[in-house]
Simulated scan of single mutants.
Amino acid sequence: MIYSIERCTRLSSTNDWLKARAQSGAPEGTVIIAEEQTAGRGRLGRSWVSPKGGAWFSILLKPPIPVEQASCISILIAVSLAKALQEQWGIPVGVKWPNDLYVRDKKLGGILIELSSYAHKIEWLIAGIGINVNNEPPTETRVPATSLSREVGKAIALEEFFDVALTAIARDYERFLSEGFEFVHQEWSKLSVLPPRIEVESGTERFDADVLGLSPSGKLIVRVGESIRELISEEVTICQLQPS
């Protein structure tokens, strides 16, 4: 995949900007990077604090896959970034299904997927990525946050970060298109920070579940009592990690 990268000083949302470009026919590999976002958002409509010093960017992809497999892309990117950051800076980055990056028990960043589909096929998909790099991690959040520079102990050159991140994503995306999701699932199993038992919130329902793995479409397979369920990322929140 060949990237076409555009940079902005300030945007409301890199996803919104790229969505307009996608609707106008922008090619796969179009990337927008913003120094800061004024209206960044995460999954389930949550706000995302995006000051200068962080890595706030969106990538336009056009994978020839059914819309039901869109979650695979979020997991793929999370796995790619976790591996790349581990290799480059030697910190223990893990993945929390479906879209978050953690260092130990603190959130480092996340991924938001938005897409357009036709006849159950993806027309285009935007992966919005937010990583705390040199910015002060937000404090008024649902879970504690950290930054790459805080974990490494020094400032990180953003150009180096983007080179590492975009190279890793392109490599694994191409592999996914040729090999499918299985290698991603295997890597996710090594990087997942989910314990064997979790607490889940889905609408007004709240329940404990045993984690069994991922489905071929990226759903989280769990056991609830005597039944097996597949959780859809757009509908649930893992609100508490239960000790094993």
Rank of each mutant, 00 (worst) to 15 (best):
K83E: 14
S80V: 11
I126R: 09
L241P: 02
Q69V: 02
G42P: 14
A145W: 01
A78C: 02
R41L: 08
I77K: 04
P137H: 07
E205S: 14
I122A: 08
A84L: 08
G203L: 15
P92T: 06
E230A: 13
G213W: 05
D100G: 01
T139W: 07
F183G: 03
S149P: 08
R206I: 13
E140N: 14
T167M: 08
I111R: 11
L125S: 09
C239K: 09
S192E: 10
N15V: 00
S202T: 07
P92S: 04
L85F: 15
V133P: 01
C8H: 12
R142K: 12
S192H: 06
T14N: 00
A119E: 15
P27R: 11
R21V: 01
G94D: 06
V67K: 05
D210C: 01
P66I: 07
R104A: 10
R223I: 04
R41W: 10
I228L: 14
V49I: 13
V95F: 04
W97Y: 07
E114M: 09
K219M: 02
E6M: 03
T141K: 03
T167L: 09
R223N: 06
E140C: 11
I5M: 03
L231I: 00
I221L: 10
I111S: 08
E68Y: 15
V193K: 02
V31L: 10
G25Y: 00
E187H: 10
L81Y: 07
E205F: 10
P137S: 09
G203E: 15
G130D: 05
D163H: 11
L18V: 03
A78V: 01
S47Q: 14
E205V: 13
E182G: 04
S217A: 15
V79F: 11
L231C: 00
V164D: 06
L158T: 06
R229Y: 02
Q186D: 13
I126M: 11
L101W: 02
R175M: 07
L194H: 01
A78T: 02
P64C: 12
K190D: 12
L241F: 00
S24K: 13
E199P: 04
I126D: 06
W124N: 04
Q86R: 15
